[in-house]
Structures are given as structure tokens and as C-alpha cells.
């Protein structure tokens, strides 16, 4: 439930987001320098292996974001008190997830062009990821349908839970489809890379850094959503008064 008082904060930043923000900058700076300079090129893939430091963490975040959306939606639906906070987290997470999904697909196809000579392969993982992207673009479209905040929350939570049913079916059918027709003719994205300690550490730092970016974005985004819901609410107080005064003046 929204508090009826006016918002007490004027920015979406808090102590927590500032700490997360500073940590993010530190870790990401290290990932950039280490990924581009310190780590060696791969024996087979050459310099293109560096795409991995962006691609793998963003894929991880993309999937993490959708898991967060699903869990927050489940909490919204099944918790006794339908807290809109869960809905905002779900929505913010899906928005951030779509962005990282696009980054994943773009970096993946750039890497594919360099390694396979093609931008796109009907690889099960790629195909599932593409369907996941479309599914969550649909989810965001449903959030923008007309209606009250509660309506938005319930509809989109149901859609998010249906996506949880849908994605395994899509993934399974795509894996099954490819395995019958061509057996693993393509490179496993990471299998061929011989990782030394520094490369592994950089990749791990990338995952940590991107997770921090994700947390930072979610914290801010769900707070801007709260602010805009509150703005509507305070608009409502004024509107109720105006509506009542209409009747007095009549």
C-alpha cells in the first residue's frame, strides 16, 4: 500500500544505493582494465575471447532478472497482502533483464560472427534466449495496458508466472529439435577456451560487477516507479477535492 503522505525523498538515491554504486564502479573498472589489457588472448579464438567478459555476465544477469521477476510475481499473487512493492520489483527487474538480454544477443552474435563466421546459428541456447526476449517484451507491453495499478500488478504477475511454464517448454522443444537434425556441429561457447587463473578471475569479477549494476538499477527503478505511483496518489487527493468543490459551486 502506498503511504498517503507526500514522498519524503527527492531523489531515488539512498545510503545503500550509493555504496552499491561505488562498489560497482570499482569492480567494473577492474573488469574493463583486466579484460582488455591484463588477460591474454586465447590460443584458438584470439582477441575475440574478450567478448566473453561482457557476454557471460550479461547472460547471467538476464536470466537472473527473469528469475527475480518470477519470484517477485509469485510473492505478489500468493502473499496474503498483495504488496505492490513486489510488483514494482518484478517490473523493474524485467526491464533491466530485457536490456541485458539484448546485450547478450548482440555480443553473442558478434562473437559468433568472429568464431563461426555467422551472426546467427539455430543453437538451442540462442533460440531459447531469443524467445525469452520476445516473451518479456510482451510482459512489458502487458504492464502498459490501461487500468488501475492493482490491475496492472495482477495481470503482469500472472503473465510472468505463465512465462515460467512456457520457457522450459520452449527450451526443451528447441533442444529436441536441434538434436534430431544436427548434432552439436557448433562450438560450445566457452568449452574451447583454455582459461588461466586471471581469465577466470576476470570473468568472475565481471559476474560480480554486472550483478552489482543489476542491483543498483533495480533499486533505483523500483523507487522511480514508487515515486510515479505516489505522484498519481497525491494527484488523487487534489482531484478528489476538486471534484467535491465542483459540487459545491454548482
Amino acid at each position: 500500500m502506498l503511504s498517503q503522505s507526500a514522498p519524503k525523498f527527492s531523489s531515488t538515491g539512498t545510503q545503500a544505493t550509493r555504496i552499491v554504486g561505488v562498489l560497482t564502479i570499482v569492480v567494473m573498472t577492474w573488469v574493463v582494465i583486466s579484460g582488455l589489457v591484463f588477460t591474454p588472448a586465447d590460443v584458438v579464438q584470439g582477441e575475440s575471447v574478450r567478448i566473453m567478459y561482457v557476454h557471460v555476465p550479461s547472460a547471467w544477469i538476464a536470466y537472473l532478472a527473469f528469475i527475480v521477476t518470477a519470484i517477485a510475481s509469485a510473492f505478489y499473487i500468493f502473499a496474503k497482502r498483495h504488496s505492490l512493492g513486489f510488483d514494482r520489483v518484478a517490473g523493474a527487474s524485467a526491464e533491466v533483464g530485457v536490456m541485458f538480454m539484448v546485450i547478450t544477443l548482440v555480443t553473442g552474435s558478434l562473437w559468433g560472427r568472429l568464431t563461426w563466421g555467422e551472426f546467427w546459428q539455430w543453437d538451442p541456447r540462442l533460440t531459447t534466449t531469443a524467445f525469452l526476449l520476445v516473451t518479456y517484451i510482451g510482459y512489458l507491453a502487458v504492464r502498459r495496458l490501461d487500468g488501475s495499478i492493482e490491475q496492472r500488478a495482477r495481470r503482469s504477475a500472472v503473465i510472468a508466472l505463465l512465462a515460467v511454464l512456457e520457457i522450459p517448454l520452449v527450451h526443451f522443444s528447441v533442444v529436441f529439435w536441434r538434436s534430431l537434425h544436427q548434432r552439436a556441429t557448433i562450438l560450445d561457447p566457452n568449452g574451447d577456451v583454455k582459461m588461466d587463473g586471471l581469465m577466470l578471475f576476470t570473468l568472475f569479477s565481471g559476474v560480480v560487477g554486472f550483478t552489482l549494476v543489476f542491483v543498483w538499477l533495480i533499486l533505483h527503478r523500483q523507487r522511480t516507479m514508487l515515486l510515479s505511483d505516489l505522484a498519481n496518489q497525491s494527484g488523487l487527493d487534489a482531484a478528489i477535492l476538486a471534484r467535491q468543490n465542483e459540487s459545491v459551486s454548482n
Binding site: 516473451t135 517484451i137 510482451g138 507491453a141 502487458v142 495496458l145 520452449v170
Partner: peptide, 23 residues
């Protein structure tokens, strides 16, 4: 009954029916 249902329906349905199309 929503606005833009002609485009929203395929957007929502296409990824869902992909397994049916394949299978």
C-alpha cells in the same frame, strides 16, 4: 477489449506457440 490487441496478441502468443509449431 484492450487498445492495440491486433498487435499485442501475436506478440504474446508467438513465443508461447513456438513449441507447438516445432513439435
Amino acid at each position: 477489449g484492450t487498445n492495440g490487441r491486433e498487435t499485442l496478441l501475436p506478440l504474446l502468443l508467438l513465443p508461447v506457440v513456438a513449441p507447438v509449431l516445432i513439435a
